Amino acid sequence: MSDRKIRTDGSGATVTGRLRRNVEGLTLEDVGLYVALLLMAGFYLVPIESGLVTSIKTGTAILETAPFAPPGSAGFTLEKWQTAIDALVRGMGNSLLYAVPATVISAAVGSLTAYGLTIPDWKVSYKAPLLAIIISGIFIPYQAVLVPLTQFWSQWVQLVQHLSFVWALGVPDDYAGIIELVITHVAYGIPICTLLFRTYYKNLSEEMIESARLDGASLRRVYQRIVLPLSGPMFAVVLIYQFTQIWNDLLFTLVLVSTESSPAAPVVLILAGLGTSMEGQDFALRMAGAFFAALPTLAVYIFFGDEFAEGVAA
């Protein structure tokens, strides 16, 4: 008897028999659903495949082949990836300098704010207006604050002058823009973080929290011992969302850092000019740079993937 026939799924049934029963049990609606899902997956994956294939093509191969077609042995090269990595590695470090602290701070403050607006017993006449003011920050477009934001940092705060002792240590004063980006993204991220956490906290067990309060636990201890340990899934959602938004933001970066030649230029600012010259666009270089710049966000999704799914489903 062949090995294929004697393998079982643990319950005594052969694997081939189980698969046959599953296939025979499919309805026309099931087949249509699977076909639709495959078409949707292909629709979303073809642009990614085209970009990835383009990034490993020579200039001649790009002109002579379709965007989604493989380059072939003669048209294959990793030179564009090496060039992109050399050009963007400094910007990756600069982006991490403000994306990581801005993400963590906005998530932490959003959690505390949402807790304060959900669990403690306030008068509704106080809680509702304060919540409305905080949530309204979500609807303020970036473009509407560019002028006051520039005036705030350049005329009122003037970090370059206040941190002169830091620049005296040899740190370029361009890094004042990194500090400005951290604070700006924290301020802009608190409203959405608060909304997400408040939605999550409203679904927590009221009996559990009331029991802790009856046992004499203070608001701070309730948050530390009960609410915070249960907030892991929503922290994953907020961290992924905030990190992605901050990492990919170009508008605030253009305003606060200005030029890609700056020592503090983030990766999105350098990427915007990568592969662009008087001779035209170097599509392979731009594609390689885009995929390289997306690696940190992909890593965050993979690292928090399970908690993210649980938080979204909550």
Rank of each mutant, 00 (worst) to 15 (best):
R220D: 02
R220V: 07
Y142H: 12
Y188W: 12
L146D: 04
W156F: 15
L230K: 04
P229I: 11
D174T: 07
R198V: 10
N248E: 13
I140W: 10
F165N: 14
R198M: 08
I190G: 00
L195W: 04
G232F: 13
S136A: 15
S154G: 08
S136D: 09
C193L: 10
T184W: 00
L163N: 01
F243Q: 02
Y201E: 01
M208A: 12
V160M: 04
G232R: 15
E207G: 10
L219T: 03
I209F: 03
Y241Q: 13
Q151E: 15
G137K: 01
L230D: 11
R220N: 02
S205V: 08
H162C: 06
W156K: 14
L169P: 04
G216I: 03
S211F: 10
P129N: 03
K202I: 11
E206T: 14
R225Q: 11
F243A: 09
A168P: 06
I140D: 10
Y188K: 05
S231H: 05
N248V: 07
A128G: 08
D174G: 11
W167R: 05
Y241L: 14
A212Y: 02
G170E: 12
P141W: 13
D215L: 07
W156S: 13
I209V: 14
M208G: 14
A187H: 01
R198W: 09
G232Q: 14
Q224Y: 15
L169C: 06
F243C: 07
Y201I: 05
L159M: 07
P233E: 07
G177V: 09
I240W: 01
R225C: 09
W247S: 04
Y142I: 11
L169E: 06
L169V: 13
N248L: 02
A128F: 05
L196H: 03
L131H: 10
V186C: 04
E210C: 08
R221V: 09
S136Q: 09
G137Q: 10
R225F: 08
V145S: 08
L130S: 10
F152Q: 02
P129S: 13
P229G: 03
L239Q: 05
E206P: 04
P172Y: 07
T150W: 14
V222Y: 00
G216K: 15
L196E: 00
E206N: 12
I209L: 11
L149P: 00
G189L: 08
R225M: 09
P172M: 09
S231E: 08
S211V: 07
A132L: 11
L195I: 07
A128W: 09
D174Q: 05
H162V: 12
Y223T: 06
D174P: 00
G189T: 11
Q245M: 12
Q242L: 10
T244M: 12
T199Y: 03
V166W: 00
I135E: 07
A176Q: 00
V182Y: 01
L214K: 03
V145K: 06
A217V: 07
W247V: 02
S154M: 11
I138E: 13
I135C: 08
Q242I: 07
I134A: 03
A144P: 02
V238N: 01
V227D: 01
A132C: 06
R221M: 12
L196I: 08
P233C: 01
L239F: 15
F235N: 02
I138N: 12
